[in-house]
Design a protein around this nucleic acid. Structure first.
Lengths: 189, 189
DNA sequence: TCTAAGGTGTTGTATATACGATAAATCTAA
DNA sequence: TTAGATTTATCGTATATACAACACCTTAGA
């Protein structure tokens, strides 16, 4: 849409910093990573870090958002309606994302991560709703998006707690409710 | 020695440009690579290229010098005397270097490449001579370094022309002459 | 308790890079 | 040959980054 192209130096530097952070996260606990560690790895001055990010937590948020968006393949998602296929792929993206994070020692920041995931989901759902619905329903659409993101995220928590079933199957069993509410017909297969 | 530390931005940008050039050299002929190609790949502005390099040929020279120096493991070489082991490793570096280049489609620039290799060898040999000899012999040492670099390079050309023997064996057969001149004793083994 | 060491966030200034404009050179097709 | 299109190389100006210095905070150890 309004694409005010940003200075390539900014894109390059942000990528350097974010990639370095992801790299370091694989080796150290989050709390043990210093700004100096990150900027050294990124071959960037320490002061430059603060030009782009408020602090370490700000960086964490942005990295998570970005990684999640990439997992969700956002370009394509924006074109889609909220149908069964899309819901499944979103659910898979979340579970994959959390699996990859759990290997990266972000222990102690689950709450932050959860919040960020839900925020992203809310944005995505809201955009999708706007595709099919009138802008007049704005307020209601927002609320539904909120409810849905909490619901989907909760489903992923439940799946992780008790994952005897592959995530595809897990989410598919919930789709009738998501699509048609309480008044659904049971699906066969 | 005098290490006037250079701006990290310069190091970073040069590396980006050089790496991109090497990358592109694997896909295209040298003559078909434009400055725009290089800078686009390097995510750097075209004008920035001219801040660091006079033109494409200047870049070629510097890339070749650098790659060769890395192949030669220059830090270590500088500490060494010019003994059999070092001569062998230098010869292997040259042949490896040329093999890697021939896969990279630098056809038509063999002469340039040859000249650069010889220049680098001359510098290395001269430094080594200075380790053992008096500075008074300066002029003579330079001449010997020149002769030696042409000789070694010529040997590598000969080896490539007729490589029925592994390069180690090839160069080892020449070492007696290099070390002791025409008046050498034949080596056994 | 004090002290030293190391991390955080901020600021002012110097410098490297981005960008658009330009003219000249080189190439291609008509 | 001419005309149009690329590519090259250079310039001035705006901006992002490097760097050193700073105050503040935490932590460890004497």
């Amino acid at each position: 849409m309004t694409q005010e192209k940003t200075d390539p130096r900014i894109l390059r530097t942000r990528k350097l910093i974010m990639d370095s952070f992801i790299e370091l996260s694989g080796k150290k606990e989050f709390k043990d990573i210093t700004i100096k560690d990150i900027t050294t790895e990124a071959m960037v001055n320490r002061a430059t870090f603060y030009y782009h990010f408020k602090d370490k937590y700000d960086l964490l948020e942005k990295v998570l958002s970005e990684v999640l968006l990439i997992n969700l393949n956002s370009d394509k998602v924006e074109q889609y309606e909220l149908n069964e296929e899309v819901i499944v792929s979103i659910f898979l993206a979340i579970t994959n994302f959390q699996n990859s994070l759990s290997n990266r020692c972000h222990r102690g920041y689950e709450d932050t991560i959860a919040r960020i995931i839900r925020e992203q989901l809310e944005i995505i759902f809201y955009k999708m709703f706007l595709k099919r619905r009138s802008i007049d329903e704005n307020q209601v659409l927002k609320r539904i998006a909120v409810m849905l993101n909490w619901g989907i995220y909760g489903a992923s928590v439940e799946w992780r707690r008790n994952s005897e079933v592959p995530p595809e199957e897990f989410i598919k069993s919930l789709i009738p409710f998501i699509m048609y509410g309480n008044d659904f017909e049971p699906i066969n297969q």
